[in-house]
Design a binder for these strands. Structure first.
Lengths: 213, 213
DNA sequence: CCTACCGATCGGTAGG
DNA sequence: CCTACCGATCGGTAGG
């Protein structure tokens, strides 16, 4: 792929991510790469084409990062943590492209839109199946794995809306914190290290068994 | 407010929510209320004005639903559950308006954009403070209350992207499940009722203390 | 509330 | 890769 083309996709990712696909004009993109509006078409065939290239590549990134972990053997909570870390890693590592994939894919025209919808379903299915496996083995406890998967992925995807590379929390710590929040929620921390010894955190009296308002 | 005006805002909410603010034209809205494009301006002053009306009202709905719970006394986890239920209730009960508020407020022009940004910060702060209070009292355990609040709100807001009123899970059950997922994560269920008796769920051997991949 | 219109901007193309 | 342009559509207005 030409350097110019790459440049165009990068600028388009940033603009689509910030103002949305419909809110960005080809002339906006052209300005970002110091070209005249019409000159873009020497490198791309249409605005849709640019959107597709961005979305397609981001979909691959998520898939390639998470799939290897899904098929590992090992405890479901451990795999789930790994998947969360991988997903967060893609979001923080390819913020603009990931944002476009996550929030602008709906502007794809058919049949590409449906193709991406299916791939998103499949991806969500990986999380669902690991959650369901953990639930079946008793390692996790969830009423509705499908709901839990959507809940979780929504939390992770929200990251793309506020994360900034120059923020106070680095990508690795962030990934750990998110994995922790995902699996344990707010009620308990994971393993806590006290004077170098890992100690499990027990149940908490005031919380467990608390009634609902 | 006139009936026509109400109708226009409803149609605009649905369209802004589905195709985005920039992806919706005034003529699209006009078609939805069986008017000619120009005739809309007998009822609204501008497209921005319509967006503002929708966003402003939704912001009020979230605030009015959640604020009373924030200031209640009582255990933090219980208040947090109530806040989650309230937030989910606004999303499911005013799906289109809530979607526009959550995802299209960025298209507001200054100074309204900044005004809404501040209100969103404040709203997030309510969640943060209840989480921090629960963390301080030992009822919750969270490394970073700000991060936890964002994580949680992202999960809740994602609901607006997929929830359908005619779906399999009703709004009340959904609110309960989401409150459960928020507080306990995937690792443990909340109070379980066995033969009519509420029984706390204890710690789970395979999970607590499990190492990280 | 409609008809008819305004200037601006849109995605995209022709010709060089 | 630029200049100059195409038809379509945009948000919004005038006049009735």
């Amino acid at each position: 792929m030409g350097e110019r083309r790459q440049q165009i996709e990068d600028v388009a990712s940033a603009l689509f991510g910030a103002r949305g696909y419909a809110g960005t004009s080809m002339r906006d993109i052209a300005r970002g790469v110091d070209l005249q509006g019409g000159s873009l078409y020497a490198h791309v065939t249409s605005k849709q084409d640019v959107l597709w290239a961005i979305v397609e590549r981001a979909a691959e990134q998520f898939r390639d990062a998470v799939r290897p972990i899904v098929v590992q053997r090992g405890p479901a909570p451990q795999r789930l943590r790994g998947m969360v870390r991988a997903h967060v890693g893609v979001v923080t590592g390819s913020l603009d492209r990931a944002s476009v994939f996550l929030f602008e894919w709906g502007f794809l025209e058919e049949p590409r839109r449906s193709q991406i919808a299916r791939r998103r379903d499949q991806y969500e299915g990986w999380f669902r199946s690991v959650i369901a496996a953990g639930s079946a083995s008793g390692e996790l406890a969830v009423h509705d794995p499908k709901l839990a998967a959507i809940f979780l992925l929504s939390a992770l995807n929200g990251l793309a809306r506020w994360y900034r590379a120059d923020g106070p929390v680095g990508p690795d710590l962030l990934a750990d914190r998110y994995a922790e929040l995902a699996v344990h929620g707010l009620a308990a921390t994971g393993p806590v290290t006290v004077r170098g010894v890992e100690r499990p955190v027990g149940p908490r009296g005031p919380l467990v068994g608390a009634g609902s308002p």
